[in-house]
C-alpha cells in the first residue's frame, strides 16, 4: 500500500544534521568528529485537518501495512504540494533516502464523519 495522496493542511520539517561527535576537552577546546557523509534525522510533520473518515483511515491502513515504524516507503509528491520545486527537492535532499513512520498517526474526531490526522515521518538512509 502506498502512502495516501491526500494534500496536507500544513507541513513542517526539520532539516536534520550530519552525524557529528562533539567532545569538550579538559583544556576547554571542543573537538568534533564527522562520523558520516550524509545528513540524517530529517523529520516531517504533516497535518490533515477536517478530512473524511475514509481518508483518515487510509493513514491507519498505511501505518498497518508498514508494520508501524518498521518498513520504509517513498514519499508521494502530494506531501510537498505547495512548495517550490527547489525547496521540495531539499526534502530530504539526501540520496538513498526513504521514509518511515516516526510514530503512530494521531486521529482527532471533529464532527460526524470528519477527522483530523497528525503524521510524523522520519527519513532514513537505505
Amino acid at each position: 500500500m502506498t502512502y495516501p495522496t491526500t494534500t496536507p493542511t500544513s507541513r513542517s520539517f526539520s532539516y536534520g544534521n550530519y552525524p557529528v561527535k562533539t567532545s569538550q576537552m579538559m583544556d576547554g577546546f571542543e573537538t568534533r568528529i564527522l562520523l558520516g557523509s550524509k545528513r540524517t534525522g530529517v523529520e516531517m510533520q504533516l497535518q490533515y485537518n477536517n478530512i473524511a473518515d475514509d481518508l483518515a483511515k487510509n493513514f491507519l491502513d498505511h501505518f498497518e501495512s508498514q508494520k508501524g515504524t518498521y518498513l520504509t516507503f517513498d514519499l508521494p509528491a502530494g506531501a510537498t504540494t505547495g512548495m517550490s520545486s527547489s525547496l521540495a527537492g531539499a526534502i530530504p535532499g539526501v540520496s538513498d533516502t526513504q521514509w518511515r513512520w516516526a510514530e503512530p498517526p494521531a486521529v482527532t474526531s471533529v464532527y460526524p464523519g470528519v477527522s483530523s490526522v497528525s503524521v510524523k515521518l522520519v527519513a532514513v538512509l537505505v
Binding site: T7, P8, T9, N50, I51, G82, M83, Y111, V114
Partner: peptide, 8 residues
C-alpha cells in the same frame, strides 16, 4: 464551519 483548506 470546518476549514478544509489545504496546501496550494
Amino acid at each position: 464551519p470546518l476549514a478544509t483548506t489545504s496546501l496550494e
